[in-house]
Amino acid sequence: MSKLVSLFCGIIFGIGLVISEMINPTKVLGFLNFFGDWDPSLAFVMIGALIIVSPLFYLFKNKEKPIFSKNFSMSNKKEIDTKLIGGSILFGAGWGLVGLCPGPAISSMAFFNVNSIIFVITMFIGFYLSDKYVMKSGISI
């Protein structure tokens, strides 16, 4: 059942990216062009998501186990360290260069856009390199 949920969540996440136009790198770059012609839409996408997520996360925070899995995989990471800041700086730079972050990058391959595919392949090479040379443990939020 968890597999069906994963597929379903991916599908509606992808639909959300299309409706909000975040699948379009030019739209995202419009948000990052804060000092020029600014398009605030991305901030409203985050607000829309957080209006749903934050109260529900809070409401269910003491729930013992999820419905289709044995336990919640929680991260207790609290530390603000150089990896968090350094990684976010690298990510921000790449995001500003093209206007794609991982979700929209993968969704934008739906229409066989060659440039999206090149971006995603190099993004996966980036995951691999960081895992091999920088990180030793798995990713968690």
């Binding site: 059942m1 968890s2 949920v5 994963s6 379903f8 969540c9 991916g10 509606i12 996440f13 639909i15 959300g16 990216l17 299309v18 409706i19 909000s20 136009e21 975040m22 739209k27 419009g30 020029g36 012609d37 600014w38 398009d39 605030p40 839409s41 991305l42 901030a43 409203f44 996408v45 985050m46 607000i47 829309g48 998501a49 957080l50 209006i51 749903i52 997520v53 529900l56 996360f57 269910f60 729930k63 186990k65 999820p66 419905i67 289709f68 899995s69 044995k70 336990n71 919640f72 995989s73």
Partner: peptide, 29 residues
Amino acid sequence: VIINFTPLTALAGGSIIGISVFLFFILNG
């Protein structure tokens, strides 16, 4: 200068993304 601003579709799409995030949490943990 503010241009191309689409607050309603942004909120709608964002809410759908939020539903996905919540379902993934409550169902798959």
